[in-house]
Amino acid sequence: MTWGSIVKKGRILIVDDAMENIQILHQALQDEHDVLFAMNGTKALHMAQHQLPDLILLDAMMPDMDGYAVCAALRASELTRDIPIIFVTALKTPEDETRALSSGAADFISKPVNAAVVRARVRTQLTVKFQSDALRELTLTDSLTGVANRRAFDERLDAEWRRCARSQMPIALILVDIDHFKNFNDAYGHQAGDACLKKASEAMGRAAMRPQDLLARYGGEEFAILLPYEDLGGAEVVAGKVIDEVARLAIPHERSSVGPILTVSMGVVSVMPSDRFESAMMIRSADALLYEAKAEGRNRFKSKGQ
């Protein structure tokens, strides 16, 4: 797959209070991109939060909320701060361009626009964005298992915690530990141990398949499954599936006190985020429940709602 083929899939949000300007830009871009539009700043911010475009073409002069205010609001939001913005405006002076770039825009195009120039500038910004996204994905991925790493988990937990708090929805966490993994490595070697971690992570991924769910390698043989908008009952269902999926692998483990095949133990907790209950407390609660599951014989989960 080439960068050019990826760029053709870009989602563009056009923000302008004049329909004729939107139509001109739409005609220039519709053959190569998925094009959305908004005719005021408030609508643009709502669409950016919910549609997450790859690029925004933003008019500077609009009533109620001008382009600079929209740009500032986009940059202030964790969800939208990395979306590149091209100002497309009737303003033409060097001072206008400097102000736009200083406010966080990636590029500046003066009206009336040239369709070929718009397409070229859009391709350039999308290429940069997708390359940056790919590099960032590498820094957030565990190199052995291919699932999210601890850094990705920490970032996602922070974002989902605040989102669930705003919407007053529960969030659940499952901490998973592979039973007697050190004994497994001692018996079969580290190469077999690495293969075991890969297969086990794939099994866990089959148990948590909603788009919003996150499976991360938390450290060593420990994994974390983050379940936004999930209550305790739903989280327990996922934990049960993890046990079943890992058992289905039937990976031999002759040095386990649990049985002849690989098993896992889990701590499961679901909470309603609030000022009185921080995300770190949820992690500690899940860890304590994981310890209880191990103490009671492993190959099980212990759960609790907060």
Rank of each mutant, 00 (worst) to 15 (best):
Y218E: 11
G240H: 03
Q306V: 15
S270R: 08
R255P: 03
M266D: 04
S103I: 09
L214S: 13
I178V: 14
P211S: 14
I109D: 14
R121Q: 08
E236C: 10
A172G: 11
A115T: 13
L55V: 10
L227S: 01
V271G: 02
I24E: 09
M47F: 15
I12S: 03
V70K: 10
K294H: 13
K302C: 15
R166N: 11
N183I: 04
A73R: 14
V35G: 01
R123V: 00
R276S: 12
C164M: 04
R11A: 05
V176R: 03
K294T: 13
D231N: 00
H33R: 08
V122R: 02
D31F: 06
A200N: 09
H33F: 08
T141M: 06
A100K: 08
E230M: 10
G267W: 01
R217N: 07
A224K: 10
G146A: 01
Y218M: 08
A235E: 00
M282W: 07
L55P: 00
D154W: 05
A134Y: 15
R210W: 12
G267H: 03
R156I: 02
A69M: 14
G259N: 05
T263W: 00
M65G: 08
L25W: 00
A239N: 01
Q191H: 10
V88S: 11
S201M: 11
R150C: 07
R276V: 14
V238M: 04
P84H: 11
L157V: 02
D287N: 14
L262Q: 10
V113Q: 12
L144W: 00
E278A: 12
L140Q: 10
M65P: 02
T93Y: 07
Q212K: 06
M19L: 14
Q168M: 11
Y188A: 01
L126P: 00
I22K: 10
V238G: 03
A203I: 08
F301R: 00
I243F: 02
L79D: 14
V118K: 05
